[in-house]
């Protein structure tokens, strides 16, 4: 019930239609990684994917936001199929990424926001290492850069309700982790792939 309402509201208020620029929607196992400007990012990117892909794709969401409150938790976990992770920084790093490795081992696709937090700028900031760690451990998974346009204008940090500003999700060409590429070079290349879609 909430799913279709959420989809209808998203389309009516912000659109959020996909633009498949460098790739096509296919059933291949993928990690979609995008810039992060708004709590709507997860919803918009999720609904930009065709139905069939949504069934096997899990957004990676912060437990401290999507895990709190009954409605939000219902949307996050039951509607959007999210995997909630702790970003409090407590506990060993491997444990934070464990559920993501598990999901990838099961053949699932992921949606991640490698900046780790929302930003107000148009272009993404530096990426955290998680994307690299996932890519290095699952080399056969396609890495698709996604640029989410206008989300931080439609629903900026601190806002209570979104404004109707038209948003789009642009999907780029897959980037792969090169055999001898180090972490910072890869993360910068991945960030650049998102930046290139913003032009």
């Amino acid at each position: 019930m909430i799913g279709p309402v959420l989809l209808g509201l998203t389309r009516f208020l912000v659109g959020g239609h996909p633009r498949w620029i460098g790739s096509r929607p296919t059933m291949r196992q993928r990690i979609y990684f995008a810039n992060h400007g708004s709590h709507l990012d997860t919803i918009v990117l999720w609904f930009a994917l065709p139905d069939a892909l949504r069934a096997t794709t899990h957004p990676v969401a912060a437990r401290d936001y999507w895990g709190t409150g009954r409605l939000r938790r219902h949307i996050g976990v039951d509607v959007l199929n999210s995997i909630l992770i702790d970003r409090s920084g407590q506990g060993p790093k491997e444990d934070v990424l464990r559920p993501l490795h598990d999901a990838l081992d099961l053949g699932r696709s992921l949606i991640i926001f490698p900046e780790g937090t929302r930003r107000t700028e148009r272009l993404p900031g530096p990426f955290k290492a998680g994307l690299y760690n996932l890519a290095a451990a699952h080399r056969d998974v396609e890495l698709i850069p996604v640029y989410l346009e206008n989300l931080s204008r439609a629903f900026p940090k601190g806002a209570l309700i979104p404004a109707p500003i038209a948003c789009t999700a642009r999907f780029g060409s897959p980037i792969g982790l090169r055999p001898d590429e180090d972490r910072s070079a890869f993360l910068e290349r991945a960030r650049q792939a998102v930046v290139d879609l913003a032009a």
């Binding site: 107000t120 900026p156 806002a159 309700i161 404004a163 500003i165």
Partner: peptide
């Protein structure tokens, strides 16, 4: 029409209240 106009106009997050 308003959504089209304001989406192309580079509003800033500080414009959120007037937009609402």
């Amino acid at each position: 029409a308003l959504r089209e106009f304001l989406s192309l106009t580079p509003t800033k997050p500080a414009d959120h209240w007037p937009l609402l």
